[in-house]
Design a protein around this nucleic acid. Structure first.
Lengths: 196, 196, 196, 196
DNA sequence: CCCTAAACGAGACGGTACGTCCGGTCTTAAT
DNA sequence: ATTAAGACCGGACGTACCGTCTCGTTTAGGG
């Protein structure tokens, strides 16, 4: 569904074009997968000249990463139920559900791969991941503040385990994404509480 | 270091060429990253005609996956120290150390991505991953048999956690691969023992 | 040498900008050749906005043709020595010398090519060429009026020969432009006098 | 009329592809003019990959020049009637008629322009022009050998005049190409015979 | 001992996508 | 109303790879 023409805004960046590009990126990614998104298709679908993409992003992958980050911005809220296990469960369910959406899953993989070769993208992706890590860390630290888990509990490692299972399943077991969150919340709660 | 010429073996497959291709794949992957491995470079580096690659593999990614699997063949032995924690620690240390090698890390990532789009590769990679999962599962189940952990311990999930952390760090924190195994072994031991 | 900034003249056309554009066109043409003149460079070199060029000319080629015509305005005077051969020699020497200047040569070629595809430019260039033809024709006709050449002398064809040699050498033998005029004057004089 | 598929000839150059490209170049030039020939169209029209063009020619202009030269190879024969004037007339008529064909005219102009910026093309075009000049020079020198014209006759200049008129009319008076040759032959004959 | 069939190195081929460059249009904010 | 600035759409360019095809050569192994 190629976007219709829009007026452009003179010597200032055209925000409509920007939005059209990002949303075209998301749509094409969902529709054709990472391989199927080409700059030409992206430009045509957004109703935009190719140069307009390169003027603001350094590569196709940069657009896709940007699209991912913007789409995930309003994604997962940090719950506060007063108990670690239910907090964890809500957070992880929302996270795993979001990742289970095919377009998100593809965008995440694409971004992860792109970041391997491009330091700028690596930095941007790192910021994105750090934000998610920070959220989960804060959630667990509240449990610590409540005295629910001992001071020795290895919180950063638990965070790695949570996101590790997430990415492992994103990559290799997408169908499991719908069912893992609850068990994982339980297991991590057990682990943190039982820290020596 | 382009491979020197070799005689070919008439109407039978030339095993030297096969080996040269696989080792060229590994070298190029370590040297230039996934993006930098092209069929042309691969063929030139192995001192091989391009068609010789396509005669035996279906695509570039298939070669890389094959190279990965062969390089991992002599991989991690399953230890048996009589205690879950030390078994886990040895297994994970060996695993994480192997993944920390740049050439392995890149090969793993490349294979994981390639498997997203190609069912044949997905199957081959799955077999590879399943082998590792089976090894770790067996290790943990011995602890169960010894009565070291309760029957309710979620073994498959613990396996996911272990390999999840591994892949998460492969993708996003390669420098952490050297330091995580011990802590992870401890955390998982705690978790499994404390299962309700 | 980018033109320094100048104040603009409000709602009246800025003649300084016009002059800056034409002279930038000439300079860039001399410096980089026809291919090297782009609207961007032209505007930057003249210290002018791009639209200012398009407001007053229909295309890049129109600017270049305009520049050519203006630079040729003070061109070759028609001599009157009383003898065909010396008149011809003076006229042709001045003409060939002017064409031998690299900036003029390139401007002429550029204009000739541009006129192939654009009727408006063709018309403008035709007017320019016709002026030169008229001058030379008048020069020869004076010789006819003096009885120096017979009535049967093919004057228009001689004019074609003179400008033909000029353009042939502009295109293919620029180094010859400095040496041909005298001999050509002699040859044409011979030819015209000997007409049956 | 895109050329149908053809087998290609392995690791040796495919002559059919070469011929298809050259003939597509000629056709497109005649049909769309120099501006309308793009590498994409050329490749599509010849049923050829784009790289196949770049493998053998350095640029679009090089293809067009090559096409021109090949099409002109069998063009104008050198007549030998035993008299300068009729020899000249036949040669020039054939030459001017060939140039009057729109596709040849456009090819010649395109080649002339391309040669301005590319030394390799300039060399190739020079060789082409030199061949034509040599033919005409030989024709005139036969008249000298027969004693038909004096030793002082400026033969190279006469050759310049002939081709000068040709190119002048190619550029600016294409309609005159059909009518000039006879008069030009007469004028040059007069001029050469009357040399002092 | 020769003859055939397969595998080999080489590299041209048809294609697809890339990222750059430029032409000509449009809008803004300043003069 | 004109200017400098510069973003915009469109589209050609030349490069890099992919996977296929063909060539001429080499070798093993069956007749």
């Amino acid at each position: 569904m190629p976007t219709p023409r829009r007026p452009h805004t003179g010597s200032r960046r055209n925000e409509e074009a920007r939005a059209a590009i990002l949303s075209a990126a998301t749509e094409l990614l969902a529709e054709h997968g990472a391989t199927g998104v080409t700059i030409d298709r992206l430009a045509a679908h957004a109703g935009v000249g190719r140069q307009t993409i390169y003027r603001w992003w350094s590569s196709k992958d940069a657009v896709l990463l940007d699209a991912l980050i913007h789409s995930a911005e309003h994604a997962v809220a940090v719950p506060d139920t007063g108990a670690l296990r239910s907090d964890l469960e809500q957070f992880l369910r929302a996270t795993f559900e979001a990742a289970a959406l095919e377009r998100n899953r593809r965008a995440l993989i694409t971004a992860a791969v792109a970041a391997q070769d491009d330091p700028n993208l690596a930095e941007a992706l790192d910021a994105f991941l750090a934000q998610r890590r920070t959220a989960l860390t804060a959630l667990i630290e509240r449990a610590h503040a409540r005295g629910e888990i001992p001071a020795t509990a290895p919180i950063p490692l638990a965070v790695d385990q949570a996101f590790g299972v997430l990415w492992y399943q994103i990559l290799f077991r997408p169908n499991a994404l719908h069912t893992t969150a609850t068990d994982l919340a339980a297991a991590l709660t057990t682990q943190l509480r039982a820290a020596p």
